Amino acid sequence: MRIGELARLTGVSERMLRYYEHEGLLSPKRTDSGYRDYGSEEVDAAQRIRMLSAAGLKISSIRLLLPCVLGKKPVFHPCVQARALLRDEVEKLDTRLRELSETRKVVARLLNAVDTNETLPL
């Protein structure tokens, strides 16, 4: 299939699919005339990349995780490294959640003060 069809199937823009290829995340075959020719492997990979990206992972992390989530077994199996990366990501998310919780408390106190015409707490 051509890039437009892959974009429609996966919800990933053509521009992002080209970027993923540039970053080595997708490797479509080429027709004799040079057009990209995507197959079912690229559909699966593009969907997984989209999911990992939506989870907030950077391209470098996705590059490491992609073989693991696709079930491929490369010569050097990176899934051991992926565990450490994922643990780090969970720790970062936990920190962000704590920070957001504190921020929410401050904003809620301010809203309460505004609603009740109280002096704004500092």
Rank of each mutant, 00 (worst) to 15 (best):
T10C: 04
R109S: 15
E91Q: 12
L66H: 06
E91H: 10
D37Q: 03
R18Q: 12
D94P: 06
D37N: 06
I3H: 14
G71S: 03
E5Q: 15
R98H: 08
R8H: 13
L70K: 05
R18K: 11
A46I: 01
K29Q: 07
E23S: 15
K29R: 06
G11R: 14
R83G: 11
L110V: 05
L122E: 15
S60D: 04
G11V: 12
L97R: 15
L17E: 07
I49R: 03
I49P: 00
E41R: 09
R63L: 02
L70M: 13
L52M: 10
H22I: 04
E5K: 15
E99L: 09
E91K: 11
R96P: 08
L93I: 09
A113C: 11
R30F: 05
S13N: 12
S40M: 05
L64Y: 00
K58P: 05
R2W: 10
L93H: 06
G4R: 12
E89D: 07
Y35E: 00
Y35L: 00
G71A: 04
A7H: 14
G24L: 13
L17R: 03
S60F: 04
K73R: 00
K73W: 00
R18T: 13
G34D: 14
A108Q: 15
A82H: 01
G34E: 13
P74D: 01
G24H: 05
I59L: 12
Y38Q: 04
R96G: 10
S27D: 10
